[in-house]
Design a protein around this nucleic acid. Structure first.
Lengths: 200, 200
DNA sequence: CCACATCTGTAGTGAACACTACATATCTGG
DNA sequence: CCAGATATGTAGTGTTCACTACAGATGTGG
């Protein structure tokens, strides 16, 4: 039997465009008309490929976290907890003000609060942010075991802290903060991790 | 000439209800139907009193910042920069997990990203957050002058940092973080301010 | 008690939304 | 070249949205 007419667009390229629309307008603010125009396809192609609007968002989130996964690996590969925090926060300052992307972070811009019918979107985003936090926590647990963090320090709390600062920086970036302003925030924030560093 | 039929609802009480709806669902996620039901009025009353949906949001934001103004005064009245940061962040941990309100902060939940036609809503919220940041900055400038912060410290950067942590905590609260988790973040965050304290 | 002004409830308005029916086009397997 | 399968473009679907026309209700000033 035949295999049907082949798709005329590249799914990943289209996803990149959809990602940008969600990033800039949020899940509820993004319309199917905007998405299809940016993706260069018509609604039936979108629905055949991604199911519905929420399915498209999840696919875009998957792509986003996959693209950032490699960078997160570099972050946790830093030799000390302090340098992990520094790479993370300084890198985020740069990424969130990269003119190649919308400002801020998709995992925040996507939707913090949503209306009835989309209540699970904020949880979906929170779950992805939690993955990054877990990665940091595991790294800080190791740092503590290696004597790189004080024995009194709480790796989970430190990871939550770095994650919170990242989110806060993302919101600032989306409302116009420039790269230098975010780097200043990162510089101050790292000092809290520094205070937890050393054998004690 | 007559003065017309008097309004049958109390504007501030109604605003409190509207504030809660915006807080929980965001600007775009909140519908007029939800708002009028929560406020106990019908659409014509809403439009006669507040102009339109965005006017209602601004009135709710005014009320929100007014209610929090007294608390911010207490915060900046703390004797040292470190204690200012501690009061601020610990207080926010408690407020953002107060079961009497929706979780998080209206100035964040209200809308970080919006669709076409509401682009100025995020800026409106950002402007109100900036007011708090300015208040902190002025307080840290004084702290530096009093020798309570090192001469090498940057009051504006510190204020931006505390503001960023506050926002990050708000997002965490809205996605389910409990009070203890936020207090841990606050405790770590204060250490960065501590590191800037003292005469140097 | 009357003219006037403002509020309130009912019942809608047009527009925009997410989503889809359907006819047509383009592929593969035989 | 044909039959089956999937993709595409056009042109809608019903629903929900913010917002309002209108008639009746309730007040004040003369």
């Amino acid at each position: 039997m035949g295999m049907g007419r082949p798709r005329e667009f590249d799914a990943e390229t289209a996803l990149d465009q959809a990602m940008e629309v969600f990033w800039r307008h949020g899940y509820e603010g993004a319309t199917i008309a905007q998405l299809t125009e940016a993706m260069g396809i018509n609604p039936p192609s979108l629905y055949a490929c991604f199911g519905n609007k929420e399915g498209l968002l999840k696919a875009a989130l998957d792509r986003y976290t996959k693209l950032r996964g490699a960078w997160m690996e570099e972050v946790v590969a830093a030799p000390t907890a302090r340098e992990v925090a520094e790479r993370m926060l300084m890198g985020i300052a740069d990424k969130q003000t990269d003119p190649a992307n919308p400002p801020g972070c998709l995992l925040v811009q996507g939707g913090i609060a949503c209306g009835s019918g989309s209540e699970n979107v904020p949880f979906e985003l929170a779950a992805r942010r939690a993955q990054n936090e877990d990665q940091l926590r595991d790294r800080f647990i190791r740092a503590k075991a290696e004597g790189d963090l004080k024995q009194t320090s709480d790796p989970a709390a430190l990871a939550r802290y770095v994650s919170a600062v990242s989110v806060g920086m993302g919101v600032m970036a989306s409302s116009g903060a420039d790269r230098e302003a975010l780097r200043q925030v990162a510089t101050v924030a790292v000092q809290a991790v520094e205070a937890q560093s050393g054998r004690g």
